[in-house]
Simulated assay, not measured.
Amino acid sequence: MRLHGLDIARFFAFCGMVLVNFRIAAEVTPGTDFASILTNGLEGRAAALFVILAGIGLTLTSTPKRVIAARAAVLFALGLANLTTFEADILHYYALYFLVALPFLAAPSRIFLWAVLGAAIVGLVGMILLDYEANWNWATLVYSNFWTPEGFLRHSFFNGWHPVFPWVSFVFLGMWVGRQELAQKQVQNRLILWGLAAALLAALPGQLVEDPELRELFGTVSIPPGPFYLIASSGSACVVIGAMLRLGNPLDRLGLAEWLAAPGRMALSLYVAHIILGMGTLEAMGQLDGSLTPEAIFGFSLGFCALSMLLTWIWNLISSRGPLEALMRRISEVFR
């Protein structure tokens, strides 16, 4: 049985990434308005939810490892192509996450939790011992030397937008969550309560230190991804997943579940579309120069999310899979 709640959570994760990425692309300066506060809160959280859901999907699928590896290769190629347009691409990271997680796929559930801890420690040690700011221009958020071996390895595994260490922790956590009885209300309640506790408690250490460097380490911002960011983002993701699973049946009875779940099943196609069509539209309008207000880019983002839902339903009259989902399936089926 497919759990609508997971697809709904995936669509909300996509919407959160749209809000964040459009603001980054349009170089909008955050303010103190509601739109800025909400988007600030989603930064790093929406992407983490997206990755945790990917980990859940890995444990719920019966797809052979070689097919998953082939799909990772397709994602990697799509991501590299996407990087030429949008430097904060996450698709090529997805491919690397899958390849790192693949050997653990049949492992006992407790191993996933040890892997979460291990990946987090590797990321923390790298942050302390290595130069996290190497190749970054923080004023423009441009990463130089990516297309060199050294730059690629640093960006992919250590100090990029979503580096493998520690971000693969989210995949392993999702794999652990996917092993739980997600259809049971007790499990859903635990995800909400424990997730809420983790998100709230993780925010405290950063408020207790005054040193700027320590505040980065103990804070919950996604760059750099410190341990308390991992805990806070994991907690908020578990809250959303648990809540959407709880609401799946009531929304289904109201006839709303499928409307929200369908775009979640086309998340890959919509992710690429929000860059090509969404950001492309902003560029054609000459709005990628910081001239938009936070409220304006917020409204544009929500409009794009609503349009994505409508276009998904129109597309579903033609096919049950999104165009990129169908293409990936066709390519990877060669290796089945």
Rank of each mutant, 00 (worst) to 15 (best):
G280W: 08
W167R: 03
A243R: 02
S62T: 13
I68Q: 12
I128L: 15
F165T: 06
C305A: 14
A232S: 07
L268D: 13
L49S: 08
L292Q: 10
W147R: 00
A243K: 09
P225I: 05
L256K: 07
F335V: 09
L282I: 08
Y94W: 10
G16Q: 01
R330E: 11
A273N: 00
A202M: 03
A77T: 12
I331H: 03
Y132R: 03
T32E: 14
V168A: 05
V221W: 14
T84D: 10
Q207M: 15
L117V: 09
L124D: 07
A267V: 13
V51L: 09
L105K: 03
G5P: 08
L324A: 10
P294D: 02
V18T: 10
A95D: 07
G195C: 01
A69P: 09
I128Q: 14
Y271K: 11
L307T: 04
E181Y: 00
A106N: 12
P225Q: 05
A81N: 08
A296P: 10
A257T: 01
L201Q: 07
A284T: 12
H162F: 13
R215T: 10
L153P: 10
T84Y: 13
W161R: 05
V239K: 00
H274W: 10
V239N: 01
L99F: 11
L117G: 05
N21D: 01
Q207T: 15
T29F: 15
V74L: 08
G286N: 02
A107C: 07
G5D: 01
E43S: 14
L38I: 08
F11K: 09
A26I: 02
F76D: 09
P64W: 06
T61C: 07
D89V: 09
A72K: 05
P225R: 02
V221K: 12
E333W: 15
S291F: 11
D252K: 15
I52F: 00
F172Q: 01
I231D: 07
V122H: 14
V187F: 00
C15V: 14
L75H: 07
L193Y: 06
A199T: 09
K185S: 13
L80D: 05
G219F: 03
A54L: 05
F76S: 10
A25T: 00
V67C: 12
N135F: 15
G255V: 01
T32K: 13
S291H: 08
T220K: 00
V272R: 12
V221N: 13
G41L: 10
G299D: 00
A257K: 02
D33W: 05
G242M: 00
N316H: 15
N189M: 12
R336P: 07
L317C: 14
P225S: 05
R336M: 04
V272C: 12
M244A: 08
R71L: 12
I318C: 15
W167N: 06
W176C: 01
L292I: 11
L288K: 07
Y97R: 01
L6A: 03
A326G: 13
P108W: 07
F86P: 05
F86Q: 06
D33M: 02
A115Y: 02
S332C: 02
L214R: 06
I24V: 13
L19I: 04
G57R: 04
Q184P: 11
W167Y: 09
I331V: 14
A198H: 01
P149Q: 00
F146W: 06
C305M: 08
I276G: 01
S144W: 03
